[in-house]
Nucleic acid binder design. Structure first.
Lengths: 241, 241
DNA sequence: ATTATATATATGTATAAACATACTAAAACA
DNA sequence: TGTTTTAGTATGTTTATACATATATATAAT
């Protein structure tokens, strides 16, 4: 386990990558401390300063927590969405080393309801791609997504049926968007959602409605997310400007 | 324009604050470059390394853009993804034109529980101001707040008992803070909350935990908010950097 | 005039060293 | 036994220094 000092890739970047892999190791998962900075640095044959460059980045992303006089540990793997970081769901889970299981995927091509067509600024007689996904940890599902895509995304649905499944599942990677508006609220699970999320009717659900726009601020996706309350926390960091 | 080298506030934090003010100056607004790192550093009588600590933070936040061989400029001043929703409750309701009724106000002076003392970075044997507020529309309450204030806010509790009520009720206006971190989740109403909000036990609640910091990023308020699900939506607007 | 080439400038990377501060745990003390 | 002191450990802050690399500009060669 060491770095390539000859590589053109800066050492602090290499160290960062290595740390990202390292913190996925179960051995650091339960609040156990990482080795101290000086030891890691000497192990990697880099200076403490350089190592700290790498650590700082992960701390900023909320993956690591440092405490003076104590040490550095991996942040609790509770699922959070930092609006600042703009990580997609899959990316965030990957970053935290949480294995994601896809329980259901439903791709359909539908006439949009009026309020959806309204947001996407299209007519209701034009079919669009509807994507339903049920995802979670191996133990069980914890989120149910429904997405509607504007035709200009190129995701017309017809083509997507031909794509391999895993390609579609990883789709959120590819949608490069600029602006999103979200509405977060709490509601109780109805029969449908309770069934999907394997919980009881009436149990609390964190409901997220997301409006996604492209670089030109044209609407491209309308997304609904139903999160099991006990497995999702939404975090927001804001600064007075 | 210089820093206080005697202050307990670290120089890179002071530099960061100063830069935040600096970049608001119209003189840097139209893509014009800041002075170079070495000049700023010598101007502030700190090392380049320390200055870069401050600069890096603003770069991370997308406020500054650096280019090797060229210089550092202020990023286009579009609505920062972080300045989302920085309205206080009263302000927000006012903006929405909703008349607010205060149902209950409870000012007390308590020994903080450990996790609160921990966040506020004080000891548990030091009394602090606890403020409980039940608010809503004329028809009925829809939010229950609990706030704990750090002594350095000056809200020691003792003084506040002497203030007129309306003054305390409008207090959130006066607390000028810089940074806040919020965690939003859904939960069910327990007996206490259900009673306060005049709803049923088990009904969905939007729960918001808020950590508020001052300009030096020292904790000043710990705030809990319980919102009746059917009357509150949390909105977030974010922009990719 | 156009194209190389050198040079100045600004950020990027990396190190070693020293001291400060928060926290923990062991040792000394009452 | 319980409390205080002390030493040890880990992160936090800061500096001074050196060289690397990307960019823009001025200079020299074609």
């Amino acid at each position: 386990m060491s770095l390539n000092h000859k590589s053109p890739v800066p050492l602090h970047i290499q160290a960062e990558e290595l740390l990202r892999k390292m913190i996925k190791d179960p051995q650091f998962q339960n609040g156990k401390l990482l080795p101290n900075e000086i030891d890691i640095a000497s192990q990697l044959a880099i200076s403490r300063t350089t190592l700290r460059q790498a650590l700082n980045k992960l701390v900023y992303e909320g993956l690591l927590i440092r405490k003076k006089g104590v040490g550095t540990k991996v942040a609790d793997a509770l699922i959070s969405s930092k609006s600042v970081n703009w990580l997609s769901f899959s990316q965030e889970m990957k970053a935290r080393g949480i294995p994601i299981k896809n329980f259901e995927l439903h791709v359909s091509w539908i006439y949009p309801e009026e309020h959806i067509a309204n947001f996407l600024n299209i007519k209701t007689d034009q079919k669009i791609l509807k994507l339903e996904r049920l995802r979670g940890r191996p133990e069980g599902p914890f989120v149910y997504f429904v997405s509607y895509f504007h035709p200009r995304t190129g995701l017309t649905g017809e083509e997507d049926f031909k794509r391999p499944l895993y390609d579609i599942l990883e789709m959120d990677y590819n949608i490069v968007s600029e602006l999103s508006k979200e509405e977060i609220s709490a509601r109780s699970a109805d029969k449908f959602i309770a069934g999907k999320l394997e919980t009881e009717v009436g149990s609390p659900i964190l409901f997220r409605k997301r409006f996604v726009y492209d670089q030109a601020e044209r609407p491209i996706e309308y997304n609904l997310g139903y999160y099991k309350a006990d497995s999702f926390v939404y975090t927001v960091e804001s600064r007075r400007g």
